[in-house]
Amino acid sequence: MTLVKDTVSAARRPRPAATATAGRPGRRRDNLAGYLFMSPWIAGFLLLTAGPMVASLYFAFTDYNLFNSPKWVGLDNFTRMFDDPRWQKSVEVTVRYVVIGTPLKLLLALGVALLLAQSRRGQAFYRAAFYAPSLIGASVSVGFVWRSLFSDGAIVDRTQTFFGWHVGGWVGNADWVLYCLVALTVWQFGAPMVIFLAGLKQVPRELYEAAEMDGAGPFRKFWNITLPMISPVLFFNVLLETIHSFQIFGSAYVVSNTYCGPADATLVYTCYLYQQGFRNAQMGFASAMAWMLLLAVALVTAVLFWSQKKWVHYEEGAR
């Protein structure tokens, strides 16, 4: 039913269509055709993915600074990283961003999807309107707008002050500026919402009717039917949103005026990687950082996949 399940099983499970063709003659020709059709992807994979991955793994253990030829330094980059307060800070900032932003975004997406799923009147319109921010959220324009809206004396400050909680502008305030970025990602809840909505539409109505006959209230219905039924979609959203959040760059760079400050408060991981790699030319160190990011993302993915056995329900007999 979902991408993820599909992905996991793709390697193992023979497809009905595949078995049908397997026994036919002309298999060799299919191999040739297959690889011919695949050739752009294979070239791309080798030149732009696999090759660079090998190279960056190598750089990670060298002192490469663009000017010298890389010299092997063993684990130096990694030990330096763990001792580096700015690296620690960037990890802290990124984790906070992911841990606060992603759940908020998904909760809002799910909440609004549930709301929209209740009525058909106006649904298409709202769905489209709520989705729009996801398309423009990544643009530099919105970064500028965000900086303005969260400045001293702008709408957010005035609203907050109106409720008696004066903070001033968020963008200059090291304690608040990260929430400005969190707000920006939450604002783009439309994309996961659309996926939730599609998932909700696939929940068979009979299940609700049966539950109603058993006297279940809305909460029970949500907990016992909706949530399990959409758990694959939820899993998909959690996985993709988390992975994306770890890689935030543009919005932090633009909102913080390219410095990822103040006081490194928006120094997200990729921003520090950029500074080390492209500003200080510490390509070895930056490559080591990139591999740590890869490991972190892989770890999170693995944990999510492991945990899905406990809470993700796949329909029996889904293809």
Binding site: S151, D152, G168, G169, V171, G172, N173, A174, N257, G261, P262, A263
Partner: peptide, 10 residues
């Protein structure tokens, strides 16, 4: 206040 300085940038 450096907060204000940051805010005023550029």
């Amino acid at each position: 206040d450096p907060k204000v300085v940051q805010q005023d940038m550029p």
